[in-house]
Write a protein that binds this DNA or RNA. Structure first.
Length: 316
DNA sequence: GTGTGTTTAGGAAAGG
DNA sequence: CCTTTCCTAAACACAC
């Protein structure tokens, strides 16, 4: 057990990348999205290391939010005053830390940016379209982004239809993406839900858009209790990373399921936060009904844009 | 001015 | 060794 003082984990930099920290924060929220300030707060609450040099790491974190396609920006509703937008996880980011290391992803989640006037000004739309046209060969990390589209859109497009298609089509694309492994870090009881549909459904709800009935009912039935970190954890975090490496076996043909349930196990004495202690294995199953729903649109969509490429390959 | 968001750039480190 | 990912710094724009 870490003791207060020198040997405490508090003094050390947590073995998480900014991406994983941010994902943790987002996933810990009931709405699956957080404003920047709350992401800061989450990290500082749980990792005392980040209570210092805030300017440095927060700049890095903002850079990560903007730069990485796995994060999408959700505009605030008019009735939700506050600074900045909400940040959510891209539905297709899947399990970026499948290799068990939260310092370094197995592969970057990268979308192919294509000029599209209607997309850029709306992150969700943008994300949706980007998804449909993502590249399977994320090369250099600077190469993927093309110029910014035109700021106008929304005029005749109709946002709802896009949200719907995004929700139904942008999610699984006919392939199983097991939920973001970060779930296990934050201790979500993660059963029977895929990572992608839900956040967006939540986002749609947040934005005041009606949700497709099937998705909506799924949300209610599958995630009835959407848990949340109740309080800041003590300054410690579970040991993992190196320790869990090797527990995973990536089987490209087997839909990237972890060979074992999420190995990230907090130390039992970190009992102050259930979500960090009573973790449920990250093994999940796709809701068949929604999977079927999603499969339809997206497969066609992706294949239309990128030949016969299967989105599942994106992560492998 | 401050907070937020985007972008470029360079270097360190990990991984193959 | 080479490539990819991560970290950091910094400039800049924008909104409040």
């Amino acid at each position: 057990m870490p003791r207060p003082g020198k040997n405490s984990y508090s003094d050390q930099k947590p073995p998480y990348s900014y991406i994983s920290l941010t994902a943790m924060a987002i996933q810990s929220s009931t709405e699956k999205m957080l404003p920047l300030s709350d992401i800061y707060k989450f990290i500082m609450d749980r990792f005392p290391y980040y209570r210092e040099n805030t300017q440095r790491w927060q700049n890095s974190l903002r850079h990560n939010l903007s730069f990485n396609d796995c994060f999408i920006k959700i505009p605030r509703r008019p009735d939700q005053p506050g600074k900045g937008s909400f940040w959510a996880l891209h539905p297709d980011c899947g399990d970026m830390f499948e290799n068990g290391s939260f310092l370094r992803r197995r592969k970057r989640f990268k979308l192919l940016r294509v000029e599209h006037s209607a997309c850029k000004s709306n992150p969700v739309l943008h994300s949706y379209h980007s998804h449909a046209q993502h590249a399977l060969h994320p090369s250099h990390h600077h190469s993927g982004k093309l110029g910014v589209g035109h700021p106008e859109y929304l005029g005749s497009m109709g946002r709802l239809s896009h949200f719907q298609s995004y929700t139904l089509g942008g999610g699984q694309s006919g392939s199983f993406k097991h939920p973001f492994a970060i779930e296990s870090l934050i201790g979500r009881d993660y059963k029977g839900v895929m990572a992608s549909g839900l956040p967006i459904a939540s986002v749609m709800h947040h934005l005041g858009y009606p949700m497709p009935a099937q998705l909506g009912s799924m949300v209610n039935s599958v995630w009835p209790h959407v848990g949340m970190l109740s309080e800041p954890v003590s300054s410690d975090y579970p040991p993992f990373n190196v320790a869990v490496k090797g527990l995973y076996h990536h089987h490209p043909g087997s839909q990237s399921m972890p060979a074992v349930p999420m190995p990230i196990k907090p130390t039992p004495t970190l009992g102050t936060v259930p979500s960090l202690t009573g973790m449920t294995p990250g093994v999940t199953q796709l809701c068949p009904r929604t999977a079927a729903l999603m499969e339809r649109d997206a497969t066609a969509l992706v294949e239309e844009k990128s030949g016969s490429l299967h989105p599942a390959l994106l992560q492998s």
